[in-house]
Amino acid sequence: MRKLTLALALGALAFSPGAAMAWGGTAHAVIDRAALAAIPQDGPVFLKAYTDYIAASASLPDSWRGDSENFSKIEEDPNHGWFREQFLFLKPIPRSRYEFLIALYKRYETIKDSDPATAARTNVRWTGTLPYAAIEAYDRLVVCMRQVRKAQATGQDASVPAQHCSFDTIRLGHYIGDGAQPMHDSIHSDGWRGENPRGFTTDRTVHGRFESQFVDGIKLTVADIAPRIGAPGHRSGDMFDAVLAYLDEAGDKVAQVYMLEKRAGFADFADRDVRAMVYERTAAGAAMLRDMLCRAWAESAQPPAKVTPAPLDFANPRFNPETGSAPD
């Protein structure tokens, strides 16, 4: 009875209006499987042994967002979105989660009387923290991959650090998968908001109808997107900037998603254009995840960089007394 009650509760959560469950289980698992299959021989191939575990757990971070576990929910909810229109005032994007949050609050204080409607959504929940969640998971992967390399180099059992890496891959894969879905990168995540000259739907179910109902209806598989993933990229350059650019590319497609919805409400599983959008976006997610895993593996071959003065040192020229640390 307890198991049945729990299952019913989780089911109700998945379909509740306030629970924006990303891509649904199908697409998240396909993205992870496709990314792992695309890892080249000079990448972290050890992760392929954990493909079934990673794919089966692809939606795990969504389970940390239940109303009954509110400490977890408050921390985790923002990690699944990046509502860019909410912080156009903020350039460049801070390289610190906490500097970002403080900037939001300062903006809220500035506009709360003159523009209370905008101020009501100028907070962490309605702006999102997805790129920070992704880069934090990436950093953890670099650390555990160093431990895998060390174990391999000394002939020790590498299975424990490899398991740590597979768990961090679940987290990174989920956030990167979310970011590939245009509605996770816009205020129009659950129906069009604000001025609407093209008459896009304001129905909150649009999110689920696209990323879950349609994806399940077309029976998305790895074979559908594997040819679209392409060669590995992001071999160099700043990874945080790459994540921001990746989210911008996805967010720029949100109007296209709504235009496609006007045709048949995502109910026509034979619609080739909607299929093409799903294939392109999930392939983009798989490619980005593959690239970040490979880049983390390459970075793990180097010893940790010595930061002087340390980020917590008041003498660091970038030290921010409001956060107690220097940003990356």
Results as ranks from 00 to 15, higher is better:
98 Y>P: 02
63 S>D: 06
60 L>R: 13
32 D>Q: 15
101 L>K: 13
8 L>S: 07
25 G>K: 11
312 L>I: 04
37 A>L: 14
64 W>T: 10
30 V>N: 06
167 F>W: 14
172 L>I: 09
14 A>R: 13
290 R>V: 04
25 G>A: 13
284 A>W: 02
96 S>N: 10
168 D>K: 14
115 D>M: 01
94 P>Q: 07
55 A>P: 05
199 G>S: 05
317 P>E: 03
263 R>V: 15
33 R>P: 02
218 I>W: 00
203 D>M: 05
233 G>A: 15
277 M>E: 12
114 S>E: 12
310 A>I: 02
120 A>M: 06
254 V>F: 00
10 L>W: 02
25 G>R: 15
98 Y>G: 00
25 G>C: 03
191 G>S: 03
278 V>M: 08
6 L>H: 07
46 F>M: 15
137 A>W: 01
222 V>S: 10
81 G>I: 12
121 R>C: 03
145 M>Q: 13
21 M>E: 08
271 D>P: 08
45 V>G: 07
273 D>T: 10
21 M>W: 14
294 C>G: 14
210 F>M: 15
108 Y>M: 02
4 L>I: 15
236 S>N: 10
9 A>G: 10
287 A>R: 15
42 D>N: 15
183 M>V: 04
91 K>W: 02
87 F>W: 06
56 A>I: 06
261 E>L: 03
134 A>Y: 00
230 G>I: 09
215 V>P: 04
181 Q>N: 15
112 K>M: 07
133 A>I: 03
136 E>G: 09
123 N>F: 12
160 V>P: 00
247 L>C: 12
241 D>W: 01
40 P>M: 14
275 R>S: 10
35 A>H: 04
155 G>S: 08
5 T>Y: 11
239 M>L: 14
19 A>S: 11
7 A>G: 15
69 E>G: 05
73 K>S: 06
146 R>S: 09
162 A>G: 15
316 N>Y: 02
41 Q>S: 14
296 A>E: 06
192 W>H: 00
206 V>W: 10
256 Q>Y: 02
2 R>I: 13
41 Q>H: 10
18 G>A: 13
5 T>D: 11
273 D>I: 03
51 T>E: 15
86 Q>N: 14
87 F>D: 00
56 A>F: 03
182 P>L: 03
89 F>S: 01
96 S>L: 07
163 Q>C: 08
303 P>V: 14
108 Y>R: 07
186 S>F: 03
146 R>G: 05
286 A>R: 06
296 A>N: 02
133 A>R: 10
320 N>I: 10
14 A>M: 12
319 F>T: 07
244 L>M: 07
69 E>R: 13
316 N>G: 05
325 S>L: 14
34 A>N: 11
108 Y>N: 09
13 L>M: 15
321 P>F: 14
157 D>S: 12
279 Y>T: 04
128 G>Q: 07
151 A>V: 06
301 A>C: 10
81 G>T: 13
131 P>T: 04
312 L>P: 00
58 A>V: 11
124 V>N: 05
280 E>F: 01
206 V>C: 13
56 A>T: 08
188 H>E: 00
201 T>A: 04
251 G>V: 05
76 E>V: 11
25 G>P: 07
194 G>C: 02
78 P>L: 09
188 H>C: 03
103 A>R: 05
99 E>W: 01
100 F>E: 05
165 C>M: 02
279 Y>G: 00
269 F>R: 11
187 I>V: 13
219 K>S: 12
109 E>D: 11
105 Y>F: 10
175 Y>T: 11
73 K>C: 04
248 D>P: 02
312 L>K: 13
